[in-house]
Design a protein around this nucleic acid. Sequence first.
DNA 1: TTCCGACAGTGGGGTCGCAAT
DNA 2: ATTGCGACCCCACTATCGGAA
Length: 344
Amino acid sequence: MGRLPTYHPMLAQLGTLPPPAQHHLWSAEMKWDGVRGLAYVEAGALRLMSRNSKDVTLAYPELYPMAGAVGGRDVVLDGEIVAFDDAGRPSFGALAPRMHQRSPAKVAELVKAVPVTYMIFDVLHVDDRSVVRLPYDERRELLERLVTPGFRWQTPVSFRGDPRAALDASRALGLEGVVVKRRDSHYRPGRRGPEWTKVKNFSHIEVVIGGWKPGAGRRGGRIGSLLLGAYDQGGRLLYVGHVGTGFTDAMLEALHQELAPLERPGSPFGVPVPREYARDARWVEPRLVGEVRYAELTGDGRLRHPSWRGLRPDREPAEVRIGDLFSGHPAGRSGRSPGDTVAG
DNA sequence: TTCCGACAGTGGGGTCGCAAT
DNA sequence: ATTGCGACCCCACTATCGGAA
């Protein structure tokens, strides 16, 4: 049998849950926060490829035995490589050191510290046959017959029925969200479309603008990003990250107008902002409050995947407390609005 | 005509490796 | 030894354009 063809992973589009009348057309899977990987099992050997078709096999030796768990077939599988933290939740941060590591000795250390699990959710090819034209339901059935779950790999369940229940479960489990997939859809390699829709559990916070960085390219001469802060118990303005997306051109212009008269020579932050950010920063009096949507906080207390929602002129900067980031906002009541997760 | 998909280009938090300082 | 930078990972988002509806 011939060499396996190369596939590019199909991507999900960010969106909202389908309306209830269409629930029977969709299936929901938990969204695993890790790195995408296509697994090529050929002649009993595993090859793992990243989203951009880089060979990352050497970084994940604990997955090699998976080659013996597909009934001796040559297959191409699609899934997510995930590292779990002590609480049993997927942790991108715990996975990060592995992603670029190729040195066998260092990899071995990392495997021992934080082993990964391959969450398999699709099958693209079996022996000489591409199965991407099979509908999702049939590929799932094939996948579950094909793969024998192991300690370091599994085929997590696909939920039928009300996807809202799956989304609620994802939130309760501290997961990123769900991916809903059309049960009659083909696998479209390398494409991003609504037949795979990711629905995420976002949080919202209010932040104080403490400065901004000039942009580049078409953002040249304008705001590139905003430096954000929140006050701690001692009244110090702590740096919580940047936001550089979510603005329309008009919003950028309006912000520029509002920030210009607030400019000041030194940083308003009560603790040093990392040098690489402070270098070309323009500081402002911390008077403006805005709202930011984000996926989660990093280990350093920075916003991950932040996006700007708009100014909050109704808020006082002094009300913006860092404590709101770490407590008092359990996942689930952290300011989600219905529009985030439910189709309108 | 309007709408949608794909793309390019901006921005974020990270890690690692390597060249320049 | 430190710093800067690009290559990879994760990603959100806006603006644009051409073709589908």
